[in-house]
Design a protein around this nucleic acid. Sequence first.
DNA 1: TATTTAATTAGGTCAATACTTAATTAAATG
DNA 2: CATTTAATTAAGTATTGACCTAATTAAATA
Lengths: 130, 130
Amino acid sequence: MNTMQVLKAMANETRMEILTLLLRHNYCVRALANELDFSEATISQHLKILREAGLLIGEKRGYFMHYDVEKTALIELAREIEALAGIEREGCHPKLRSDCPVELKPSCHKKGTCDEETIEFCHGKEADRE
Amino acid sequence: MNTMQVLKAMANETRMEILTLLLRHNYCVRALANELDFSEATISQHLKILREAGLLIGEKRGYFMHYDVEKTALIELAREIEALAGIEREGCHPKLRSDCPVELKPSCHKKGTCDEETIEFCHGKEADRE
DNA sequence: TATTTAATTAGGTCAATACTTAATTAAATG
DNA sequence: CATTTAATTAAGTATTGACCTAATTAAATA
């Protein structure tokens, strides 16, 4: 799953409404257009974005296209976001950051506690700083 | 929580990178700008969007602003997305939709199975249809 | 209390996104 | 196999979003 693509697909009011409508009811494209008061072309374009993100699968029934929400994609997204919340602060342990110039940074960002090299690491070269 | 606002805040590569950086390390604004190779102004604007969505809280330490990720917001978002996945299809039960014109729609969208009123409900007025 | 300094906001540019209508496509049906 | 019809794609426009530099703000410190 491309998390970014899924988030972008969901980060739009109309597409979220399409998702919730399709979760509850089996609308065709025109019915969605009627419900949401947009042109069929607009809805079709939104459906494409949702489909390409893996949030919908389409099926043709008679003349009509019907879309189903791929619930596993939603669950996977929820897991990914939970995983983010599970990330722990590393503090400033140089062991975990091979590019960290200091051995220990006990009270950084109190003026005077960091040497020039540390300040450069955290805030850039002196020339760019003022 | 405003789910839409949180999704919009997260649906951007730079902001997601900011989030993951801040989950792991206590960067100030300039350090984030250095890591991500954007101007401080740009990072500040992204931080504002994340803050207003409730994904960050800021704290001033000495001269520096430090932001922490509001993990509860992430967990809440994950729950909301899971809740979406939990929504069940209503089929087409007129009892659940007071505006549904039919008593039962057993095999709708097979030509001829819906009367004119049903078709109008699903697909709009005849005049708008051709 | 004047100065220093990081962060933010203002103002402007360019690219991406969300719409529209019109044209096209592709599948179902007579 | 020609016709019908829903959906999609194309083309164009207007809005929104992401970036920049420059100006401003507000807090810490001398």
